[in-house]
Design a protein around this nucleic acid. Structure first.
Length: 225
DNA sequence: ACTCGGATTCTCT
DNA sequence: GAGAATCCGAGTA
């Protein structure tokens, strides 16, 4: 673990308490925060991106239960991280070729989580392009706009990243606050699911070009609680 | 043991 | 806008 890149030296790790809340609360608050990672075999290389699009998935204790959530039928070998402490990475494989990354929320035993769907690349764009099998001059939007694209860009896999604590100073994978000002998020329904398709649990930074999707689905302002 | 389909992406047309 | 790629976790028998 080496020192952070200059632009992130002043950023701070998030606190555990940040994630001790429902996914509906945590998801919009994650917008603007920074996900950073470095390859295990290359400690000097950092990659970082700002979180611009997330989705909340509710734990089985929620009423009504969230049928689109991996945890909605209770603990399994795959989703066990979700039932552990908050602020840990849940990375799973999908379609035989891709990965998606979530962050566990709520108290231990309650399996809410937040899916990261898109980042705005900040640091290590060259390395991201290599990981994505794209040329060095490729559009930044191609790097991390999409839940599996961002995993590929940052080199995230189930084998090495599932279960990692995102709030530990020595962790390969961290979520930090770099002072990006809070913005009122937009809300829409979640993407790519076939259950609970009407639930308004997808949150984006407004007008951010790195939000995934061909048309950057707009959405409406989140009502303040 | 066996089947089914997925919180996706890319490449065509 | 449609179809393929591609594997394993979860549910059923």
């Amino acid at each position: 673990m080496t020192s952070l890149p200059p632009e992130l030296l002043r950023s701070r790790l998030l606190l555990r308490a940040f994630f001790l809340a429902s996914p509906q609360q945590v998801a919009p608050r994650l917008l603007g925060k920074v996900l950073i990672s470095h390859p295990k075999d290359r400690p000097t290389q950092w990659m970082a991106g700002r979180i611009v699009e997330v989705e909340a998935y509710l734990g089985p204790h929620h009423d009504p239960p969230d049928p689109a959530a991996h945890a909605h039928r209770g603990p399994t070998q795959r989703n066990s991280v979700l039932f552990g402490p908050a602020g840990h990475a849940y990375v799973y494989a999908i379609y035989g070729r891709y990965f998606c990354m979530n962050i566990s929320c709520e108290a231990e035993g309650q399996a809410g989580c937040v899916l990261l769907r898109a980042l705005e690349p900040l640091t290590g764009l060259d390395a991201m392009a290599l990981n994505r099998n794209l040329g060095p001059a490729s559009a930044p939007r191609q790097l991390t706009s999409g839940p599996s694209r961002l995993c590929q860009a940052l080199g995230l896999t189930r084998q090495t990243h599932n279960g990692l604590d995102l709030l530990a100073p020595a962790s390969l994978l961290q979520v930090r606050d770099d002072g990006f000002p809070p913005v009122e998020p937009l809300v829409t329904t979640r993407i790519g699911i076939k259950q609970a398709v009407d639930w308004p649990l997808r949150f984006t930074l407004p007008a951010n070009p790195y939000v995934s999707g061909p048309k950057n689905l707009c959405g409406k302002p989140l009502q303040l609680a």
